[in-house]
């Protein structure tokens, strides 16, 4: 494990009302590492992503999370984002009438201002948008379109990665960015992500299928079952899951099937 810690999750429990969904998560991610989290539907993958991003629907009932040395759980949603935590949403949200250009200008400039950088000029901004849109093969005309409004499923996912590229985060969490993509779109998205990999940027790639991990090759793979990480390994673990499903792990652990 790398000595430069990006994210350190200790015994995190969280839920909604009386329903505990995350039942003690432990995970450390070093700078520049790519971790994959796999698990069947309903195992708590999106909940983990939401809790890390700070969604208030979920109540954190225990544990600690440190992000680049800060107490993540104490930070507001926008502070986490400005500090460099990015979430590519499983279901990107539509903002009717809000143009991509206005939205991203606001976003990029609040992140820049947090880092003590000047706001980008209109010309620099347009140039950056064009360059980063090309990474995921998005039409640069998109700047005039409203955020996610009328975007196809695949466009929405590419748009998430495009925003990732614009905001240059330290830690990017990708929540099922592969779902609903055909093989060509999957390749485009994976290529984009691979080009954004760097020694200072970590990824937490959440997926249901092994397929994506052929393209975005992870350093570590974790299995999330019923709110716990029950197995961790290298990229081979993903292949084994693809071939044998999750049952063998359940049997190994003797956990009952979640309701």
């Amino acid at each position: 494990m790398s000595n430069a810690e990006m994210l350190e999750i200790k015994n995190l429990t969280a839920g909604i009302e009386d329903n505990e969904i995350l039942k003690g998560i432990n995970l450390s991610i070093g700078a520049g590492e790519v971790h994959a989290i796999m698990g069947p539907n309903g195992s708590g993958k999106s909940t983990l992503a939401s809790v890390l991003a700070g969604r208030e629907d979920f109540e954190v009932t225990g544990g600690e999370v440190s992000f680049k040395g800060h107490d993540l759980l104490e930070m507001e949603v926008e502070e986490r984002a400005r500090e460099g935590l990015f979430l590519a949403f499983q279901y990107p949200v539509e903002l009717p009438g809000v143009s991509m250009a206005n939205f991203l200008k606001e976003a990029v400039n609040s992140v820049r201002s947090h880092r003590g950088q000047d706001a980008l000029s209109a010309v620099e901004f347009i140039k950056l948008m064009k360059e980063r849109a090309a990474l995921v093969d998005l039409n640069p005309d998109l700047k005039k379109r409203a955020v996610n409004e009328g975007f196809s499923g695949g466009e929405k996912k590419r748009n998430e990665i495009f925003q990732l590229a614009m905001l240059e985060p330290s830690l990017a969490i990708l929540d099922e960015t592969d779902s609903g993509l055909d093989i060509d779109a999957l390749r485009i998205v994976a290529d984009g992500v691979n080009r954004l990999r760097s020694e200072n940027r970590s990824f937490l790639v959440i997926t249901h299928y092994q397929r994506l991990l052929n393209y975005i090759v992870p350093d570590f793979v974790h299995v999330l079952l019923n709110g716990r990480i029950v197995k961790s390994g290298g990229k081979d673990l993903a292949l084994k899951l693809e071939e044998h499903g999750y049952d063998w792990i359940k049997e190994e652990l003797d956990i009952a099937e979640p309701a």
């Binding site: 969604r55 507001e76 926008e78 990107p92 939205f103 606001e106 992140v111």
Partner: peptide, 18 residues
Amino acid sequence: QIFYCNQRGIGEAEAIKL
């Protein structure tokens, strides 16, 4: 919608304005 904006670093007030 607010959460989506916040997650991109945009504060509440700016999000509502947008």
